[in-house]
Design a protein around this nucleic acid. Structure first.
Lengths: 134, 134
DNA sequence: AAATAGTCTACTAAATGAGTAGACTAAAAA
DNA sequence: TTTTTAGTCTACTCATTTAGTAGACTATTT
């Protein structure tokens, strides 16, 4: 399951995608429209900004906005930033790999199955952009 | 991510699958071979037994065993029993559906994307049995 | 009756999830 | 240059879940 954080992140991203190149959008506008707790959303947007997904400007007329075209921002990236691994077990994670203890990874069928699951999942999430969820 | 519980459940199931029709296997044997904390494993096996995945016998010569052929026991079933939903968001879960608040589900693109992810995941997990992880 | 092996209830400690509070900083306008 | 505006940052809190443990109980066999 995705965390609430990830679900909010995707909704917020969708909102910004809809308004691409229309100038900065204030956090509270996103919060109200998408029904996300304001202070919680602040944290989430900040995370995504730090990872280069969004940009922001302070002061009057400020807010959040995209610099990258929305069709280039994939759901997989957003989920990884807020929730971490997409794979179901750490030893098949591409970005958050951790080797499993007491398991011969060179010939582990569990690993093989969950690598398949990971690939199936990524085939969707790496190819759906935030424009696909507006 | 799968919980440890689910990972242990899959390993234990694989162990029983390898010894299908060879009589009851004691919990401590599974625990030792698969390096799973004994008391924790007891709980897990019990859960799966209650859901009809395993059978057990008490007393001397007792233990856990399969009555269903292992190739008919799918990973998806085991994961659902111990971890619950496989879908990434509740509103697309087949077995643990919960409607989302403030979202028009008839025309929600988030829902559509995550239904696709669910289908891709299930296509693997509903077709891999515990024989595939020995 | 004793030994064996699963069953069941209940407990704990640590981590995670879901947020909240409030002070701080940058940018723009008065 | 002060005020206002709007994002930034640190650090909380509280509830739930995760990952186990303890110990008494029950059924089966010898």
């Amino acid at each position: 399951m995705l965390s609430k954080k990830a679900q909010y992140a995707i909704k917020a991203a969708g909102y910004l995608a809809e308004r691409y190149q229309q100038g900065p959008i204030q956090i509270h506008e996103i919060a109200e429209n998408k029904k996300i707790p304001l202070k919680f959303l602040e944290n989430i947007l900040l995370m995504l900004k730090k990872e280069g997904i969004f940009e922001s400007r302070k002061g009057k007329g400020g807010g959040y906005f995209l610099v990258t075209p929305p069709e280039k921002i994939m759901l997989a990236s957003i989920i990884r930033i807020v929730d971490g691994p997409i794979a179901l077990i750490p030893c098949v994670s591409l970005y958050f790999y951790k080797k499993c203890n007491d398991c011969d990874e060179t010939d582990c069928n569990i690993k093989k199955v969950f690598a398949e699951v990971r690939d199936a999942t990524l085939k969707v999430l790496e190819n759906k952009s935030i424009l696909d969820v507006v």
